[in-house]
Design a protein around this nucleic acid. Sequence first.
DNA 1: TATTGTTATACTCTATAACTATA
DNA 2: TATAGTTATAGAGTATAACAATA
Lengths: 145, 145
Amino acid sequence: MDVTPGAQLMPVLGQLIRIIRQTDPSDGVSLVALAVLRRLESEGPGRISELARVERASQPGMTQLVGRLERADLVRRIPDPHDGRGVLVELTDGGREQLARTAAGYAATLDALLSRLDADDRAAVAAAIPALRRLAAVPAGAGGG
Amino acid sequence: MDVTPGAQLMPVLGQLIRIIRQTDPSDGVSLVALAVLRRLESEGPGRISELARVERASQPGMTQLVGRLERADLVRRIPDPHDGRGVLVELTDGGREQLARTAAGYAATLDALLSRLDADDRAAVAAAIPALRRLAAVPAGAGGG
DNA sequence: TATTGTTATACTCTATAACTATA
DNA sequence: TATAGTTATAGAGTATAACAATA
């Protein structure tokens, strides 16, 4: 067993996430919550089950998260006109503002960190971003090969 | 406000962490727990307060995490011979084995994901790993420049 | 007095199981 | 029967405040 890229990448991801999380807890918008808001903004209203699948949460977990977001007036539930069982979750104006604010806060934390690196390192990170984005977008359940 | 590297990097990190977390929950070893075990292995026994600082957790939070790890026989507490107030946390043999197992599981998840990328993307990620490692190692409290 | 660690308490986040309503 | 969503319940994880013991 040698040191694979995955083995090197993993602790780094954990550490970065912990740094990000601790920087801006005042907003009260967790990373999953933020991901949901972001998705609602870019894709429009979405179903609970779809959000759960895409964000890799359980359906009850997503119900509860949406409940918290609704109580904070960041989203609202509207009935799905095409399926009486379903619910569409929609971003409110407040949710849109909160999304912008929180995302900017988290981004600023990372940019501050990046600013401590030298130019070569910054360039290496920037060059890897599209690849990392594709890495994160690998569909759920995709095994190795 | 344009799209900074931090703004692009942030959602990717969140998504990757969620992927990693959901891949191998059976171990019961969280990412922070894993980071602590890893540190104990590489640096030897450490103080609660030191672990809390390095892993960016509160001191009570670290006490509780160490308590969970101790209950699972992954670490043990020994008195600090140089300071009656202090405690040294030490990895057990079981903890070392669990660390190897869990780290391998998480790494395999990431490597499987990486294997779905094309060669250029994989190279870009590999090239960025040292920079990302330095990014994650920026000391706590270091503001932007 | 300051530091180290623990206990008490509360909250967020998430999961599984059981349930309701619609398809 | 299958699917969409909710409720009930439990547990991990983490924080702040208050405390005990040692320096």
